[in-house]
Computed example of a mutant assay.
Amino acid sequence: MHILTAEARTHYLEKYPIDDFFSFDINPYLEVRQFDKGEWIFQEGSFPDTVYYMIEGKAKLYMTHKNGKVSLIEYLEAPLFMGEIELLNEARYTKGIQTVTKTICYSITQSCKEKLLADALFLRRLCVFLGEKATKMTSKYTQNQAYPLENRLAAFIQLSADQGVYKEKHTEICEYLGVSYRHLLYVLAQFCEERILEKRKTGYQIIDKNRLAQLAQEVL
């Protein structure tokens, strides 16, 4: 992770304005940070002192269970807040968030926590975000029951691919999508036969973006 230059900061703030999220001047409390692919934004169990607003990139949200098993809970895609629950909750125990691609975030220090928690404009924005987040999570679970794996996997590949390449761990994705390992491999092989994907050493290259999008559109 590194803080971007003043010039880059100006570029991103012009491209992704955030001033209207707040009723006070947020600039003294804000930095623009870049996380490289595979970096941890939050380590699980840490006590973050920062609220992030992702403006570009993708990340994974993980949770470790009491038995030691680690589960992928959700894929995160810009734009969205991270660390907002820790801001609202005094316990501030966070789940792990790891980037999937290069990711650009606005970093807001909790030194302005009292201002944030007293700001009706920001809290209204946060409430809308949390409502949309809850709806998305509910939709994901209902989709697992309502749609075939072909459609759900196509949507997932679109979401998780980096520069046209899909290379997630099969075991992790089986659990996330609620399917067997064998079923997942069968559908991936089917996509390859239909020339939607091509298996390579680096992962699965997306060959037919239009066909993948058609399959994904069923669940979007």
Rank of each mutant, 00 (worst) to 15 (best):
M137C: 12
Y141L: 12
D162R: 09
L153I: 05
V179S: 03
H170M: 09
T138I: 11
G178F: 04
Q145S: 14
L126H: 01
R182I: 12
K169L: 12
A134K: 08
C127F: 11
I173C: 06
Q158G: 08
L184P: 01
T171N: 15
R124W: 11
V165I: 11
L149K: 03
K136M: 11
K133Y: 12
A155D: 05
I157H: 03
H170F: 12
G164V: 06
R182G: 13
S180C: 10
A155M: 07
Y186Q: 12
E132V: 09
V187Y: 02
Q163D: 14
E175W: 13
Q158L: 13
Y141A: 00
A161T: 02
K167Y: 13
I157A: 00
Y176N: 01
F129V: 05
K136P: 04
A154R: 02
L188N: 04
K140M: 06
S160C: 08
S160V: 07
F156R: 00
Y176T: 02
E175M: 14
T171M: 13
T135K: 14
G131T: 15
L185W: 03
Y181R: 13
Y141I: 09
E150F: 04
A161I: 03
F156G: 00
G164N: 05
H183V: 07
K169H: 09
M137T: 14
F156N: 02
F122R: 00
C174Y: 02
Y181M: 12
H183F: 07
K140H: 10
Q163F: 13
A161F: 02
Q145E: 09
A146E: 14
A154G: 02
P148Y: 03
G131E: 07
L149H: 03
A134N: 10
Y181N: 12
L130V: 08
E175N: 15
E132H: 14
T142P: 03
E175S: 15
Q163W: 10
T171I: 14
T135M: 14
I173G: 02
G178C: 05
E175D: 15
Q145A: 13
L149S: 01
E172A: 10
Q143I: 11
L177W: 01
K169W: 05
Q163N: 15
L188S: 01
Y176P: 00
Q163H: 15
S180F: 06
D162I: 08
Y147A: 03
S160N: 07
K133W: 10
